[in-house]
């Protein structure tokens, strides 16, 4: 089942085109990795899925992205509603500095005047932190501020915050690039476990990571998709010369 389908997507920063005629489908409850050298447009593509790209001054998008057969770039679609269905984890942990760990996790519910009982909130916070594999480490310090946590812990709380609102899709933009190997390992473990719950799209610089965690791999170069396939096929038997050169480390 396709969860997301991209049709003829083009994106610009000012006059510079960063995505060129992207067409691709992403399967439900699978992990798709987007790989490619710096500046190939992989992060921009990711940020088009939750309409974050267009928030940058001068940025522009054309084309269609279907989420369960609804085009999220249709005029009457509110980007806010799209973002409630598609969560995102960023390159660097970006927990809200002024909120406790608990409030961060529940932040998605503090909006639009959603009223939740104390019990329900506790439940959501615990479930989300467990899903993100960080509950045991933070359960006694939920009232602390994020700065009391290490970068890796913060990033996993970020994952919990994104999961708390039960998104259908989770976007991850190089979620471990700012972290040490042990935190990276833990987060990769978390990602693999989350596959049961949500569709995951992960952008990564690290080819080994893509090979370790993903089911499908998309290789991008200079704003275009060069090859899409199952991860094992891309890494063992790439069809395109460019893909082969990249994964064997000839450039990138």
């Amino acid at each position: 089942m396709d969860k997301i389908r991209v049709e003829n997507l083009n994106a610009w920063f000012g006059s510079m085109q960063v995505l060129k005629n992207i067409n691709v489908s992403l399967k439900e409850k699978k992990i798709s990795a987007i790989i490619g050298p710096s500046g190939c447009g992989k992060t921009t593509l990711l940020r088009c899925f939750n309409r974050l790209h267009e928030l940058v001054p001068g940025a522009r998008v054309e084309g269609k992205i279907f989420l369960d057969n609804t085009n999220i770039y249709e005029k009457e679609v509110d980007p806010v509603m799209v973002r409630r269905r598609i969560g995102m984890v960023f390159q660097r942990p970006n927990l809200f500095n002024h909120m406790s760990i608990y409030d961060n996790v529940i932040a998605g519910y503090l909006l639009n005047n959603t009223k939740l009982s104390k019990e329900r909130k506790d439940e959501i916070v615990e479930r989300s932190l467990r899903l993100a594999g960080i509950w045991e480490e933070v359960k006694n310090r939920l009232r602390d501020y994020p700065s009391a946590l290490s970068g890796g812990q913060q990033q996993r709380v970020c994952i919990a915050r994104a999961l708390a609102v039960e998104p259908e899709v989770l976007l991850m933009d190089e979620p471990t690039s700012a972290l040490d190997p042990i935190s990276t390992y833990r987060i990769e473990e978390t990602i693999r476990e989350l596959k049961e719950e949500v569709t995951i799209i992960i952008v990564t610089h690290n080819m080994q990571q893509a090979a370790r965690v993903s089911d499908e791999t998309i290789f991008m170069y200079m704003g275009e998709i060069i090859e899409v396939g199952s991860t094992s096929q891309i890494f063992t038997n790439p069809k395109q010369k460019l893909t082969e050169d990249y994964i064997t480390g000839k450039f990138g």
Binding site: N50, G87, G108, L111, C158, R161
Partner: peptide, 26 residues
Amino acid sequence: PIDQREAGYALGMTKWEVIWKIVLGN
């Protein structure tokens, strides 16, 4: 920081929610 605002938007906050709860909060 921009990343605080983007975190808010990515959670599905409206512009006003980002300004009131995130930017002013920070």
